[in-house]
Design a protein around this nucleic acid. Structure first.
Lengths: 217, 217
DNA sequence: AGCTTTATATATCACTCGTTCCATAATCCC
DNA sequence: GGGATTATGGAACGAGTGATATATAAAGCT
């Protein structure tokens, strides 16, 4: 009477030969490679070498290069997004949220959280400009999703009377994302944390000027 | 007695069979392709098809794919940079220059100068993250060159007493470039001219807040 | 005219790409 | 143990990559 429960609990009670590698660890390696080099410039040979597995294992575990990239995007979101959006989510005000997003981005984009590639995997990705329409749509929706997240926080603040309803939430959110995306390009070119933080600070003065009366203490 | 002069004047007085295609026109086609898809995702077959020539002609005229890309960068600079930097160069004040750069970028990046790809070829290029070190260096120096151009205009304005010498020209120039690069990403995702102009305007309020006393009339 | 020089078209090079076949190995179930 | 099932390592697949060899065509030079 325990078989069904075991299966439900064990999630993937495989019957055949067990996988010899850690799927998530291999996915992490693949993510790093896609992140640093992009989709097109990363070959299956590069991937199998970095992941320490053979190509049949890669295809058995992930299906295809495109599917692996899609999973890498998910892995990136699950593991690295908190570096950017952690304090944004818990901030008390919209201004603190946006400021935290940009300042934390300055740190994360310049590699101040361990040995990670510079720049944002999503912002710098140009997949989809070449025929991989499905992946392009994923990346694009990840970018517009981030913008929507900022916009939602802004509208929340407007509804709460925290900032005047004369501000254009659409435009301001787009501005914030433009700054963050631009910081990724700077990071790719070698800009350090302090330099990116300077950009974030100037960007916030733009915020303050636009959201008059919400200047910091 | 006229042979030497003729050669010096004609620049390339070829002796053999004349080239059957317009080199600059073919280069323009190649530039458009590299611009829209990037270096890696553009194949020789794509190029020869768009340029209307065979691969031996391409190699005879340009040398290699990398050399063609390098020439495309030059062609891009010579032909499209004025769309971005034209009014910047002739502006009377640093503020007008930067504002013109961002506002004109909003138009150019969203394709409002004929049928050109969205976004900036240089800002969106990720060549060099994959082994083409030489091309990567070219693109990187094009980006840092743009930043240096803004910075130089700022320092000029500081020297002229146009803006206070308390402003950090480095940081402000980096901020401007971040906004412009970010606008390229937005443009790639479909943002229109008006949306990018909104970003530019908000960015300029950041400028005004930072460069106190230089607010527009 | 013939000779030299350069460009073109066709076909092809060696190589890498993403992907899969096949034989073998390792595990679970009975 | 045997049988079913799944993973692995090595080899190989067809397609496409960047780049050329070869033969022919079109020009200038003398």
């Amino acid at each position: 009477m325990s078989e069904a429960r075991d299966i439900a609990q064990a999630e993937a009670r495989s019957r055949g030969r067990p996988r010899a590698f850690d799927r998530e660890a291999a996915l992490a390696k693949a993510t790093r490679l896609f992140w640093a080099r992009g989709f097109e410039a990363t070959s299956i040979a590069d991937l199998t070498k970095a992941m320490g597995i053979g190509s049949p294992s890669l295809y058995a575990a992930f299906g295809s290069k495109e599917a692996l990239y899609a999973e890498s995007l998910r892995h990136y979101r699950d593991n690295y997004e908190p570096l950017f959006w952690g304090r944004f989510s818990s901030a008390a005000t919209a201004r603190e949220a946006v400021s935290a997003l940009l300042m934390d981005s300055a740190a994360a984009l310049s590699g101040h959280h361990g040995d990670i590639p510079n720049g944002c995997m999503v912002a710098l990705s140009s997949v989809g400009c070449e025929g991989h329409e499905q992946l392009g749509e994923m990346v694009r929706s990840a970018r517009t999703g981030a913008e929507a997240r900022v916009k939602a926080r802004l509208e929340e603040a407007i509804a709460a009377g925290e900032i005047p309803d004369t501000v254009d939430a659409d435009a301001l959110a787009r501005y914030v994302m433009a700054v963050q995306s631009g910081m990724s390009v700077l990071a790719r070119d070698g800009a350090g944390r302090a330099e990116l933080e300077d950009v974030a600070k100037i960007a916030m003065t733009g915020w303050d000027a636009r959201v008059s009366g919400a200047a910091p203490a």
